[in-house]
Structures are given as structure tokens and as C-alpha cells.
Design a binder for these strands. Structure first.
Lengths: 354, 354
DNA sequence: TGCGGGTTCTGTATCGATTCAGCCATCAGT
DNA sequence: ACTGATGGCTGAATCGATACAGAACCCGCA
């Protein structure tokens, strides 16, 4: 059987009768040889079917591959489903595309050992982690490689180069806004807890990761600052069964079943808020007359919910761009915290008189 | 200045006092050495901070990298926006994740030369092309590398290994369904034309690519088979300015402005159909009493439009899974055509009596 | 004692390119 | 005619690992 193997640079060199170096230069440093010879080399290469320098060999020699990796806690499909993640990746892609670098979506980090292996074996020049996990020894496995490493929205324990947003200030502003409007009975729709190890106390799970506790703290800040009783604010915890929107529906049901009913709900994401709005609509509760709702993220859909969602804007695309830029800059020891901003739309209104 | 370089396998070998081969075996073939020695090697490696075999070097030697590439015609962000693309990638991810292989989203293929360079230099074991382009010499640049190559939804000219769906049969069934319901004045909402070279005739642009002409042919099949006049069916062509949904709105406006108004619209995608439904709602046209609409794809949202969309289901996730499986199998010369199926919901009804 | 058969480990070639120092002409300047 | 640049090209070392063929040793058994 006749197996066709792609020719190598050496084959081309032999065919032309020059050294390998010269052929290499024909591809990488046109100024190092005469135009004439270069043309001849390229010609022969084409007629031999030489596909150009092998990327892996080049990567080995040069020490860089032109690929950066992205790890994400959830199954990949979820990344495509979550609008906030989509915008973030769009930001990444903007910068990486421009630099001609490709983005490898690494398989989900599974059980500890397999996950560590994936990270240890990924042929990348750097890594962006978009994971909540803080204690993660899988990521430690990567850090041993001493490659640029940027973590996003991930607390303080992982890497020296981090980008995040002012979660706490954001929910603080959102909650203060509600309190200013006269609301006193608040409820919180909290990001669902996923992947908790068996037997973890749900209340404790709440404190894990970074985003969730920070946003919760902001809410609490505002409540306490207003002299209200934090312990009286219901914060149902849901172990997610699916999308955040679904979690929002479940939590909304729990909150709205209470008597007296909350007059305002602070949701930790727009998707959660969308779920809350759906339940309110189902029950005939008028938003914002009978119930105010604020979200977080300001995804595009926040503009088109009914009513349009008051929310905390975070610069999602900019966050992706910043992360990519830092990575390309070698991930210097930096902590970037992007600002958040309250955007008041139609889902919040003064509390009804009792 | 003291630069820390990660130790290599050779350093570990020296430190333990064994050969490189043995260290390599400690990682890759535990059965080739005593548990005792292996443990010692791993210990020393850990204490030296050796991150494990370098993936690039291993890739060179083994001839495989554990990464497959995906190219897409549109900017990356669009891929995340298009629900059909998302499901397709989900299918890919399902299979690749299970195989521990990562997916590199290659930068968009830009102008010809840069695009070809990207493909020539991507360190991947294989490539999945999710592009319409058929004549593409950028893809030819990749094929010179003799790596597994699967094209999806891309006509007949590119690769020996293709997966697609029965586009023509799908729209044929959808159109026949409308005709059976008594509709005689049809309109077509066609996939928008993107990236046409300057000066191309829009009518000609319609025939380019693969999906669009195939779906159009199916519609025509049904129209002709029913003895209707194909030339009387309006097919507005839109050069896309944005999302398919937006294109659907524009085309719907054009179609519904006609007098006499079509009583049914065949949309080439669910996103287009969603745009059509929005415009109909804006204008107070009752769907399905005054206007029937069919879509294509059966994205999840098709279930929840108002009214729920009659559409042609294509197995998007399965398509992704099949493409990934074929690629992993080395992309044998195969043509897979997955079936499509008409799903009747609430957006189609018998034509109103005139 | 001698020999087949396992296990455990080593040495060397190899994967396909890039890098770097340096060689050889040619050519301008004095 | 000699020096110093410059352009154009080559050879050998190197990137970090894996494959493959065998060496050394221990075991049991005739």
C-alpha cells in the first residue's frame, strides 16, 4: 500500500538544491534571500505539494503556538447559552482575531485528575479561566507550566493577573435604588449553585466562588446601611437544574409565595430577573406597580423584556477584550476591576403605599 | 536577572538518575516500570516543579495535537448569536469533550492570503468547516496538509467527507404543506446574502453557497409540482445588515406590502420566521388566520414563538456529533445526509376563503 | 548448568522546523 | 591593492519529547 506523506521542508530543500535554512527563510524572512531564489523555492514547494512549515514543529522551536485556551466551569453548550458568557467571548474574539490568534475551547474540566491532565496537556500559549472555582488544583496544574494565565471574575486566590468587575458596588447601587424608592420588603434571587460536592451545606455553598458572595455582600451593604434587618431578607438557595432563567422562575415562586409578599426583588443576573418577570406575569402581578425588579449584567435582552429591565450594567465585551489584551501582554501581575453602573429602566418604581 | 525556566523531562531524568525514556514512561506507560521507581520519579518531578511532558513537543513526536479546528464564515460573535450554530457546536462539543479533544475556534478567514495562512498554520489534527463558500482556495490551502477535513452544509465541491441535511426535501415538504392547506399566494423569506464581492448581481448571489440554493430548490419543487407559477412567487433578496431576524423583518415588510398580500410565507430559517412573525404582529396581521408562516431548523425558540412555529426540523446537535465523529474517524470519504422532518405547530392554517 | 521468558530500564534515532554564528563573493572607498 | 560592508547562503545545534530495539537481570525448570 502506498501511503502519501506530506513532504517536509527538508524535501523541498533537497529538491531545490539549497539548505533547509534557506527554505525556512523563504517562508519566514523573505529579505534574507534573493527574490529569484525565493520564487524558485516556492514554486518547487507548490509542485511538491508542500503545505508550508509544520505548525507544531514551528511551535516547538519558537516556543509559541498561536493558540490561547479558555476554560469554563460549565459544559460548553452552556457557554453558548448564557448571553453574558457570549458577550464576554465576543470580547475575547475581537482582540484575538485581530492578533491572528485562535481560541481553543478546552474540554470541560471533569473530575479532578482528568481535568488537570487536560490543562497540563493543552498546547496553548496562555490560558483564560472563566471559572468560579477558587481552590482549584486543576488550575494549579496549569500554573506549573509558567505560562500567562488570566482569571476572570474569580476572586483573589488563583492568579496574579485578574480581571473582574465591581460586583459589590453594583448590587449595592441597585439595592439602594430600591430602598430609595421606598421599598422595605426585599427579596433576593441568587445565582443558582452548581456542582456542589455531595453533602455541602447549601448555605455554605452560597459563600463559594467569587461573584455570588460579592453580589450578595453588596445587597447586604445597602440593606444594612439603610438600617434594615438583613436577616429578614429572604434569600432562597436553588441548586440549579438548568438555565439561570429557570432558576429565576423557581426562586421567584418561592419569594412571591411569602406573606407579606416582597415589593422588590434584587436578581443577581438578568437571566434570573427574566425568570422573575415571567412568574410575575403568570401570576398577574404588575411590574413595576406591585413589584419592582432589578437585574445584573445588562445583556441585550434586558432592553426588550416587558417591562424593560432596570439593571446593573457591566462591560461584558470590554471585560473579554481586557482579558485578552492582558494575556497577550504576558499576564503581568495586575488586578483590573471594571466599573459597573446602574441603568434605570421600567421595571422599578416607587413602592406602593400600604 | 534570574529567569526561571520550567524544567524539562531531561532535567527530571538527571535528577532521579534514570534515562529520559524512563521518565517518559512514568507518564505514558506506567506498566513499563516498577511502581516504586515511578513514584520516585513523580515525586522528584513534583519537587522540581516539572509540569509534565510538554504538549507541543509531544505533539510533534506523536504527530497529533489533541485539537481540532473549526472555521466559520462569519465573525465569531455571530456564531454565538445564531441558535442553529450554537446547537451544532454543542453537538461537536459533546463528542469532542468525551474524547478529551479541544476545539479551536480559528480566527475568521479574512482576506484570501491571511486566511490561507491561518489555516496553513493552525496546529490542529483536523478541521471542520462550517462555511458556505465552495470555491475557497483558503480551504484548499488546508487540504494540502492532508489532514482529516469535514465540511458541513457545504455543497459538493470541497471535501470528500461531508455532512449535511436534506435541505431540499425539507423546504419541499414545508411548501407542500402550505399548498395542501389551500395557499396559492406564497412568499419566500430567503437567507440573507453576506459577504458578496462588490458588484455581484444579487440574483446571482442567491445561487451561491449550498444551503440557500437547496432550500430554494425545494420550495420551487413543491410550487411547480402543484402546477403553480414559480415566477409569480416573490423572493426578495436582502444583503444582510445584521442578524437573520432583522433580515426576516425587512423581507417580511417587503412581502406584506405587496397587493394582493401573500397568504403564506416560507422562511428559510426560524430566525427569519421569527422576524416575519414580529412584523405580522406589529401590523396586526393574525397568524395563522390571515397569514401562515413556516420556518426551518426547529431551534428551541420555535416552540415558544407566538404562535408556536410550524417548521422543518433538522437534527442540529446530531449534525455536530456526526461531524465530530467522522473527523475523529479520520474523515473517510463519505457523504452523510441527515433527514429533515416537518413539524406542524400553530403558525400554519388553511387559507382563508377569498 | 543452561536456557527460554518476563520485567525493567537504557541509548539512539527521530519528529520538522528555527536559530545563530559564520563563510564566501562582490563591491565601494581610499 | 587592501579594508570593510553588505548580501546571500550554509551547517550544526537545538526545541522537548517519544519510539524502538535491545541490554541486563531475575526467575523457574529441565
Amino acid at each position: 500500500m502506498f501511503v502519501v506523506t506530506a513532504p517536509t521542508l527538508a524535501d523541498v530543500a533537497r529538491a531545490v538544491g539549497v539548505s533547509r535554512t534557506t527554505v525556512s527563510n523563504a517562508y519566514n524572512r523573505p529579505d534574507q534571500l534573493s527574490d529569484d531564489l525565493r520564487a524558485r523555492i516556492l514554486d518547487v514547494a507548490a509542485s511538491l505539494g508542500y503545505p508550508g512549515p509544520d505548525p507544531v514543529a514551528r511551535g516547538l522551536r519558537r516556543g509559541r503556538t498561536g493558540v490561547v485556551g479558555l476554560v469554563y466551569d460549565e459544559p460548553l453548550s452552556y457557554m453558548f447559552t448564557d448571553p453574558a458568557a457570549v458577550l464576554f467571548v465576543t470580547g475575547l474574539a475581537n482582540v484575538l482575531d485581530a492578533a491572528g490568534i485562535s481560541l481553543a475551547l478546552l474540554p470541560r474540566l471533569g473530575a479532578d485528575d482528568a481535568g488537570a491532565a487536560v490543562l497540563a496537556q493543552a498546547a496553548v500559549d496562555g490560558l483564560i479561566s472563566f471559572c468560579e472555582a477558587t481552590d482549584d488544583r486543576r488550575l494549579a496544574a496549569f500554573q506549573a507550566r509558567r505560562l500567562p494565565f488570566v482569571t476572570v471574575d474569580a476572586g483573589t486566590t488563583q492568579a496574579p493577573c485578574r480581571v473582574g468587575i465591581d460586583d459589590r458596588g453594583g448590587t449595592r447601587a441597585a439595592t439602594a435604588h430600591l430602598i430609595d424608592l421606598g421599598h422595605r420588603r426585599l427579596g433576593v434571587a441568587v445565582l443558582p449553585v452548581t456542582d456542589v460536592p455531595e453533602g455541602t451545606d447549601p448555605g455554605e455553598a452560597m459563600t463559594q466562588g467569587s461573584t455570588r458572595p460579592a453580589r450578595l455582600a453588596g445587597i447586604r451593604d445597602a440593606v444594612v446601611a439603610a438600617g434594615l434587618d438583613w436577616d429578614a431578607v429572604p434569600v432562597p438557595v436553588v441548586a440549579s437544574a438548568g438555565s439561570d432563567r429557570e432558576a429565576g422562575r423557581i426562586e421567584a415562586a418561592l419569594l412571591l409565595d411569602r406573606a407579606p409578599r416582597p415589593t422588590a426583588i434584587v436578581a443577581m443576573s438578568d437571566e434570573l430577573a427574566a425568570g422573575v418577570l415571567e412568574v410575575a406575569a403568570d401570576r398577574g402581578i404588575d411590574v413595576p406597580r406591585e413589584l419592582s425588579v432589578v437585574g445584573f449584567d445588562d445583556i441585550p435582552a434586558a432592553r426588550t423584556t416587558v417591562p424593560a429591565l432596570t439593571t446593573v450594567r457591566q462591560p461584558l465585551v470590554a471585560k473579554g477584550e481586557e482579558a485578552a489584551r492582558l494575556l497577550l501582554a504576558g499576564a503581568p501581575e495586575t488586578v483590573v476591576e471594571l466599573p459597573t453602573e446602574l441603568v434605570v429602566r421600567a421595571s422599578t418604581a416607587p413602592a406602593a403605599r400600604e
